[in-house]
Deep mutational scan, measured.
Amino acid sequence: QWKVGDKCSAIWSEDGCIYPATIASIDFKRETCVVVYTGYGNREEQNLSDLLSPICE
């Protein structure tokens, strides 16, 4: 189960590419979260089910 502060990978809606991110907040009722893309600072809402394991850098 994901928690705030977890590192993950998420698909950015603008280009469909996968980027490393950190979970900033979680809404368990809606099963969504807000991620912050590492190195970019962009925030975006994602479905918890769409999150991927962190990418090894």
Results as ranks from 00 to 15, higher is better:
1 Q>T: 11
1 Q>N: 13
1 Q>K: 14
1 Q>E: 13
1 Q>V: 11
2 W>Q: 11
2 W>Y: 09
2 W>P: 12
2 W>K: 09
2 W>H: 13
2 W>T: 09
3 K>Q: 14
3 K>H: 13
3 K>Y: 13
3 K>F: 13
3 K>P: 15
3 K>S: 11
3 K>N: 12
4 V>Q: 08
4 V>G: 12
4 V>H: 10
5 G>D: 12
5 G>A: 04
5 G>W: 09
5 G>N: 07
5 G>E: 11
6 D>T: 00
6 D>Q: 00
6 D>G: 00
6 D>L: 08
6 D>Y: 05
6 D>R: 00
6 D>F: 06
6 D>P: 00
6 D>M: 07
7 K>T: 08
7 K>R: 12
7 K>P: 09
7 K>A: 12
7 K>I: 10
7 K>Q: 12
7 K>S: 11
8 C>N: 00
8 C>M: 00
8 C>E: 00
8 C>V: 15
8 C>L: 00
8 C>W: 01
8 C>K: 00
8 C>R: 00
8 C>Q: 00
8 C>D: 01
8 C>T: 00
9 S>P: 07
9 S>E: 11
9 S>G: 09
9 S>I: 07
9 S>Q: 12
9 S>M: 15
10 A>I: 09
10 A>E: 06
10 A>R: 00
10 A>C: 07
10 A>W: 08
11 I>E: 03
11 I>P: 02
11 I>S: 01
11 I>N: 00
11 I>G: 01
11 I>T: 07
11 I>R: 15
12 W>N: 11
12 W>F: 11
12 W>Q: 04
12 W>R: 09
12 W>I: 08
12 W>M: 07
13 S>C: 06
13 S>D: 05
13 S>Q: 06
13 S>A: 08
13 S>N: 04
13 S>W: 09
14 E>Y: 15
14 E>P: 03
14 E>N: 05
14 E>R: 15
14 E>K: 15
15 D>P: 03
15 D>R: 09
16 G>Y: 09
16 G>C: 09
16 G>M: 06
16 G>H: 04
16 G>Q: 05
16 G>D: 07
16 G>L: 07
17 C>F: 12
17 C>N: 15
17 C>L: 15
17 C>M: 15
17 C>Q: 15
17 C>V: 08
17 C>E: 13
18 I>W: 08
18 I>V: 12
18 I>F: 11
18 I>P: 08
18 I>E: 04
18 I>Q: 03
18 I>A: 08
19 Y>L: 06
19 Y>P: 02
19 Y>N: 04
20 P>K: 04
20 P>F: 12
20 P>E: 13
20 P>V: 10
20 P>Y: 11
20 P>Q: 11
20 P>N: 14
20 P>T: 07
21 A>F: 06
21 A>Y: 05
21 A>I: 12
21 A>G: 06
21 A>D: 02
21 A>P: 07
21 A>S: 02
22 T>Q: 08
22 T>I: 14
22 T>A: 03
22 T>L: 11
23 I>P: 05
23 I>E: 05
23 I>G: 03
23 I>N: 02
23 I>K: 00
24 A>C: 09
24 A>F: 14
24 A>R: 00
24 A>Y: 14
24 A>H: 13
24 A>D: 10
24 A>L: 15
24 A>M: 14
24 A>P: 05
25 S>D: 07
25 S>C: 07
25 S>Q: 06
25 S>P: 02
26 I>N: 06
26 I>F: 01
26 I>D: 08
26 I>R: 00
26 I>A: 03
26 I>E: 05
26 I>Q: 00
26 I>P: 04
26 I>H: 05
27 D>I: 09
27 D>P: 00
27 D>L: 05
27 D>E: 03
27 D>F: 10
27 D>C: 08
28 F>L: 12
28 F>Q: 10
28 F>D: 11
28 F>C: 06
28 F>H: 14
29 K>D: 14
29 K>Y: 12
29 K>I: 14
29 K>M: 12
29 K>Q: 14
29 K>G: 10
30 R>Y: 11
30 R>A: 12
30 R>G: 09
30 R>D: 09
30 R>W: 06
30 R>S: 11
30 R>L: 10
30 R>P: 06
30 R>K: 13
30 R>F: 10
31 E>Y: 08
31 E>L: 14
31 E>Q: 15
31 E>G: 15
31 E>T: 02
31 E>F: 10
31 E>I: 04
32 T>I: 08
32 T>L: 06
32 T>F: 08
32 T>A: 01
32 T>E: 05
32 T>W: 09
33 C>M: 06
33 C>T: 04
33 C>Y: 09
33 C>K: 00
33 C>P: 00
33 C>G: 00
33 C>H: 00
33 C>L: 07
34 V>A: 01
34 V>G: 01
34 V>H: 00
34 V>P: 02
34 V>N: 03
34 V>Q: 00
35 V>W: 04
35 V>F: 02
35 V>M: 04
35 V>C: 07
35 V>P: 01
35 V>T: 01
35 V>A: 02
36 V>I: 14
36 V>P: 01
36 V>L: 08
36 V>W: 05
36 V>K: 03
36 V>H: 02
36 V>A: 05
36 V>S: 02
36 V>Q: 12
37 Y>Q: 03
37 Y>C: 07
37 Y>K: 01
37 Y>H: 03
37 Y>S: 05
37 Y>E: 01
37 Y>P: 01
38 T>G: 03
38 T>V: 11
38 T>D: 15
38 T>M: 11
38 T>P: 00
38 T>L: 12
39 G>P: 10
39 G>V: 10
39 G>F: 12
39 G>E: 08
39 G>M: 10
39 G>C: 12
40 Y>E: 04
40 Y>F: 14
40 Y>P: 05
40 Y>H: 15
40 Y>R: 15
40 Y>N: 15
40 Y>K: 13
41 G>T: 04
41 G>H: 07
41 G>E: 07
41 G>I: 05
41 G>Y: 03
41 G>C: 07
42 N>F: 15
42 N>Y: 14
42 N>G: 08
42 N>H: 15
43 R>Q: 14
43 R>P: 06
43 R>E: 11
43 R>I: 09
43 R>N: 03
44 E>L: 03
44 E>R: 05
44 E>Q: 04
44 E>A: 04
44 E>W: 06
44 E>S: 04
44 E>P: 02
44 E>I: 02
44 E>H: 02
45 E>W: 05
45 E>T: 13
45 E>G: 02
45 E>N: 01
45 E>Q: 12
45 E>S: 04
46 Q>N: 05
46 Q>A: 04
46 Q>R: 08
46 Q>K: 15
46 Q>C: 03
46 Q>E: 06
47 N>K: 14
47 N>Q: 10
47 N>H: 12
47 N>F: 13
47 N>L: 13
48 L>E: 05
48 L>S: 00
48 L>A: 02
48 L>K: 01
48 L>I: 01
48 L>F: 04
48 L>R: 02
49 S>N: 08
49 S>T: 07
49 S>K: 13
49 S>G: 10
50 D>E: 06
50 D>A: 09
50 D>W: 08
50 D>Y: 06
50 D>L: 05
50 D>V: 07
51 L>S: 02
51 L>D: 02
51 L>Q: 02
51 L>E: 04
51 L>A: 03
51 L>F: 03
52 L>K: 06
52 L>H: 02
52 L>W: 04
52 L>M: 12
52 L>E: 03
52 L>G: 02
53 S>G: 11
53 S>T: 08
53 S>K: 12
53 S>L: 15
53 S>Q: 14
53 S>H: 09
53 S>N: 10
54 P>N: 04
54 P>R: 10
54 P>V: 07
54 P>W: 08
54 P>S: 08
54 P>K: 06
54 P>C: 11
54 P>F: 07
54 P>T: 09
54 P>Y: 07
55 I>N: 09
55 I>G: 12
55 I>A: 11
55 I>L: 14
55 I>S: 08
55 I>T: 09
56 C>F: 14
56 C>I: 15
56 C>E: 15
56 C>N: 14
56 C>Y: 15
57 E>I: 13
57 E>Q: 11
57 E>W: 13
57 E>S: 14
57 E>N: 11
57 E>V: 13
57 E>L: 10
